[in-house]
Each structure stands twice: as C-alpha cells, then as structure tokens.
C-alpha cells in the first residue's frame, strides 16, 4: 500500500474508532434508559421509582392468575429467582398471555408494591415449534373461549 493510501486509511480508521468510542460511551451512560423495562428484582428491591410511569417485565407465575369482575385480572410476575410482584390490570390481555409466559407491563408501582398496569404486552422467545411437537414436553395449553 502506498503512503498516501495508508494515510487516508489511518484518517478513516481514526474517524470510525473515535465515533465508535463516542457512541459506545453515550450508550453506556444511557444504559439504564435503554433497557425497556425493570426486571422483578429491581421492582422488589426498590430500585424502580414508585408512582412514576414505568415498564416492568417478568414471567407469569404458575397458578397466580386470578380473574376478578369483568375484565379485571391479577397475576404475579416472577424471575424464578425469588423476586415476585403482583400486577393488577383491567382490560384485554394479549393472545400469548398465559402462565409461564414472559410479560411486559406498563403502568405505576404503588406504595404497597403492587403494579397497577395500563398496558400488558407479551414477550415471546426465539423458539418456534409445531403444535404436535409442543404437546410432547409441555402440558397442552387450553385456548378455550
């Protein structure tokens, strides 16, 4: 490579590395804000702000879904590592909502540590399988009306 081209290459690498470090530092500094939701341990430990509009996420604990009057529902989100919190919601749940499913809720955490949700979103994983295969290692899921 001739010296002129080497100099140009060095300039561009300097530019890209510099811009890369800048973006990296900005993203690192904003780390907490880029996370879309608070995991259960942060809700339980008090790291999440009380009575502010936030998102929280976790897995729906087995046997915790209790339906109340009309559309109101109460369930527990857990990380299966000892941190649980209760969510209250009134509205239509997404189709993928079920026990053991990853769920994201948007709303406010009240002083009693109960999450008052205004919106419930379902998170799904990268595993896809046909229904007949799914029945082999998980209990059949009742989708009844």
């Amino acid at each position: 490579m001739n010296p002129k081209r080497r100099a140009r290459l060095a300039t561009i690498l300097f530019l890209v590395v510099g811009a890369g470090i800048t973006v990296g530092l900005v993203l690192y500094a904003l780390n907490e804000n880029i996370n879309l939701f608070y995991p259960p341990d942060q809700i339980v430990s008090g790291a999440a702000p009380v009575d502010a509009q936030i998102r929280a996420g976790g897995m729906v604990r087995d046997g915790s879904v209790a339906r109340g009057e009309e559309l109101s529902v109460e369930f527990v989100l857990t990380d299966y590592q000892g941190s649980d919190f209760t969510v209250r919601y009134s509205g239509i749940l997404p189709d993928l909502f079920r026990e053991g499913q990853g769920i994201l809720v948007r709303g406010r955490l009240d002083a009693q540590g109960v999450f008052q949700a205004q919106e419930v979103l379902a998170k799904h994983d990268e595993n896809y399988m046909p229904p007949e295969l799914a029945g082999m290692h998980t209990a059949p899921v009742s989708d009844g009306p």
Binding site: I34, N35, L36, F37, P39, L121, H124, D125
Partner: peptide, 25 residues
Amino acid sequence: VVGMINIPIIKYSVDWWLTLHQPAT
C-alpha cells in the same frame, strides 16, 4: 463508513439490553 457503527448495535441490542424483541432466530 461511520454508519457502520450501528450494525453491531442492531445485532447485539437484544443481548446488551432488556428488550421486548426476542434474541436471534
């Protein structure tokens, strides 16, 4: 060339941060 910085961010966004989007298929 400078925009290339965004490519690893897209790729690893689901690993570096908590997202609603699932990890790579």
